[in-house]
């Protein structure tokens, strides 16, 4: 994992692996910590020696954040992953294209509307099948290419999305 930003209880710290030999050295914020003897006593527990002292904590990974409990204190940790927006899951697509030729039978959004991942943008009919076209990611509708009752070919752009308001390339990258 490349250097990353980790958020703990809302506070952001930079974390980076500095060395692996003779022991793992991780830079957290400005300080470099030496870690040895990393063990997992149970699936939910992690134990290691941090700068000479033993740390043992409970851990659970939620969908977005990690919950850690050490010495009777729970911490919510978020590990930023550049690219975690899931380009591999088509969640960065700008142009939403038709998978089949068809007709727009209902239009649920207008240009300029903010849309959320999974939101239905239009209903199209192809081969007697009505299909909802959903937003592949959060964003703003930049352009509606296929208007109500218009027909389109396979591969035609139906809707174009722009980044959601307040979001830009630099903010998304290297998060």
């Amino acid at each position: 994992m490349p250097p990353t930003k980790t958020t703990i209880n809302g506070r952001s710290v930079d974390t980076e692996i500095i060395a692996r030999r003779p022991a793992l050295a991780v830079k957290i914020g400005e300080a470099v910590h030496v870690v040895t003897d990393v063990r997992r006593p149970s699936p939910s527990e992690i134990e290691f020696t941090l700068d000479g002292s033993v740390v043992r904590g409970w851990c659970f990974a939620g969908p977005d954040e990690l919950y850690v409990r050490i010495a009777g204190n729970t911490h919510i940790v978020n590990i930023a992953r550049p690219g975690a927006s899931g380009a591999g899951n088509a969640q960065t697509v700008n142009d939403i294209r038709a998978e089949m030729p068809g007709t727009v039978v209902a239009l649920h959004i207008a240009e300029g509307d903010p849309v959320a991942l999974g939101q239905k943008l239009m209903t199209v009919e192809s081969m007697k099948l009505q299909i909802g076209v959903v937003a592949p990611r959060d964003g703003v509708v930049a352009k509606v290419h296929a208007q109500l009752n218009s027909t389109f070919d396979r591969g035609a752009a139906l809707v174009s999305l722009a980044p959601a308001v307040g979001e830009n390339a630099s903010a998304k990258g290297n998060g």
Binding site: M1, V35, I46, I70, V77, I79
Partner: peptide
């Protein structure tokens, strides 16, 4: 700082990527 490091590292060691 040591508590913060302990918590951050516990989370990181739970993370398969890390």
């Amino acid at each position: 700082p040591s508590e913060e490091a302990a918590a951050v590292l516990t989370a990181l060691f739970d993370d398969a990527d890390f």
